[in-house]
Design a protein around this nucleic acid. Structure first.
Lengths: 336, 336
DNA sequence: TTGTCATGCTAAATCGATTTAGCAGAACGG
DNA sequence: CCGTTCTGCTAAATCGATTTAGCATGACAA
């Protein structure tokens, strides 16, 4: 029936008052506690296995050592885990626990989640989007620092992938491998709407910059209604089926690249050997494919970590994180 | 500078004591409060927008309306989101918030996570494993109801997929489609260790039962070192390359099935038409493949929901949830 | 001897709720 | 007219910490 020891228990056992225990254990300076008393308190705390009750602490101090993470799991949950992981890891290293909420696109679920978190007095809020886009958020509780990860919203500090650099690096990588005849599958106009994507425009700009710097133009550029394997496969069939087919394809993302793989298989072409493929995102899929898909990784985990750091320790209004190039073998020098 | 209204504010505004406010708002029966006073309290609470402070409530009542979710994100995070989603949805519907922790396989990270959660006085704990297996957990805090989802541990109540039924249903589905020459790729002995998998044995038993009931034997059964596309592809090459190749393949999971797809492509065979494939898990991958992969879905979301329900409302020691058959087109009647 | 100042500590208020015990007045019975 | 019971409400304790204000005691100077 032994309950958890309280500060009062420690005080009793050390022969001092609760006040003294609090002062000693919080290491307050300038408090004129004798070394002897301090020692007794520490010993008592140690032997009793005392640790302060978080709920009492929250009530008194108004802070909870907890941060809220709200995400929009709706459309795509595929990426969630890496971001959550980053959030949890960073939080743990800062001694914070994480309270999670997931919302769909109903504005009042956002509102409810955020009100609930601020009711519970979380120390900071991280809003995480699975797909980088611009959203409207309900007014944030004042006094709670809030960061949006993988998205933009009003004046909130943001953490985003550095898509311009990634687009540029991807194109440069293919060019440097020796390719001159390159097609781009998945340049979709509708993605340029910031509500649909906050970053794709930057990706395109980076790609365009690299191509321009090399004095090249894409042999073909296809729009796609969706960045999914089905439409991508069809587009790739026509691109790769033409007599003057490109030696490399830049795919808008991994699922598009997967469609390209399927089209190549249908046409009896071997990836890397007959046609190189370079892509974006680094989904699990990219690692399953043979040859493995070379792609620019969306740094979900890093973004989660950065979001937590920024929320606890505000400073930057925009943090752009590098997207590492993951080399797997789908890009090789052109034949001939 | 308006702070959130407290119970005392409501009391003042209604011209009653804090006690009365508490009694009225908690709807205590047998408390002899006049209808008039009750009404005044409710009106005041409403106009002030009062809601009780969760931290104060926790301190006083010892309950937090929060549940802890601890998962082992280590090896595979692919599935995490569906389970988390289930947990969050069920929790929300019960008015609970969720505090998350993720741990790797270090026993003391488990310990730390669990101590932290019980320090914070969560009302219940759900332990979620990404891959069904048997683990040792540190002793759980007494008085906190705990459930393990997708795993087994000591005497803890468990939520598991009903793998026996799924194995049986999978095999029956293929048999009922008319197949008689069926191979099984991925019958791995090492998976039978309960520490590696808590459920695969049941899956095999279900499959065996269905085969036996139909009076059939597998034409080939391959062990695999890993259930990954690479090894599976090789195994499938030899199975499908033989002159007396089977008309259907039962794959141990979707990644194995993907290896089979690749082998079929290499051999110029068309899935469904030339060889049917049936699988387990229903990863995102299963939906990308063409034709879509018919597979028995691991009900991660349902398991997450059930885990929460069981934790808040203990009753069963073992809950086996059905694995739905997801038909996508990779199984067709054999030709000829 | 008395006043002043450190020193070393503690009593009590506070955070915002719940809950126990009990007060004041009305109604009722004898 | 007095005692009992019921009605309608509240004061105060409590949960477990932090923090402010201040009480003893001893040392020292005048």
């Amino acid at each position: 029936m032994s309950k958890r020891p309280t500060q009062a228990d420690v005080a009793r056992s050390a022969g001092v008052s609760a006040t003294t225990v609090s002062l000693v254990l919080n290491g307050r300076t300038g408090t004129r506690i004798s070394d002897d008393a301090a020692r007794r308190v520490r010993v008592a705390a140690e032997t009793l296995g005392y640790s302060p009750d978080p709920t009492a602490l929250s009530l008194r101090t108004g802070r909870t050592k907890t941060l809220g993470f709200v995400s929009d799991g709706v459309t795509v949950t595929r990426y969630a885990s890496a971001m959550i992981r980053g959030v949890l890891d960073a939080a743990e290293s800062k001694g914070q626990s994480v309270m999670m909420a997931e919302v769909d696109d109903h504005p009042d679920r956002w509102e409810r989640a955020i009100v609930d978190l601020s009711d519970r007095k979380v120390d900071a809020i991280v809003v995480g989007l699975m797909v980088a886009r611009t959203i409207e958020l309900p007014p944030m509780p004042s006094g709670v620092s809030t960061v949006i990860v993988n998205g933009l919203s009003g004046g909130l500090p943001s953490v985003l992938p550095d898509e311009f650099a990634a687009g540029r690096a991807a194109a440069e990588y293919v060019i440097r491998a020796g390719h001159r005849r390159i097609a781009f599958i998945g340049r979709s106009e509708r993605m340029l709407d910031p509500v649909v994507s906050a970053t794709v425009g930057r990706r395109y700009q980076g790609i365009d910059r690299a191509m321009a710097d090399a004095g090249l133009h894409f042999t073909t550029t296809c729009d796609l209604p969706e960045w999914e394997p089905g439409p991508a496969r069809e587009a790739a069939m026509s691109v790769l089926g033409s007599p003057s087919r490109p030696t490399a394809i830049l795919a808008a993302n991994d699922r598009v690249a997967f469609g390209v793989y399927q089209a190549a298989a249908d046409l009896g072409l071997t990836i890397a050997q007959d046609v190189s493929v370079m892509s974006f995102d680094d989904e699990a899929l990219a690692d399953y494919l043979r040859p493995g898909l070379t792609t620019m990784r969306l740094p979900y985990r890093d973004m989660g970590m950065a979001g937590v750091r920024e929320a606890l320790n505000p400073g930057n209004d925009l943090l752009e994180l590098p997207m590492p190039l993951v080399e797997r073998g789908s890009v090789a020098p052109p034949r001939g």
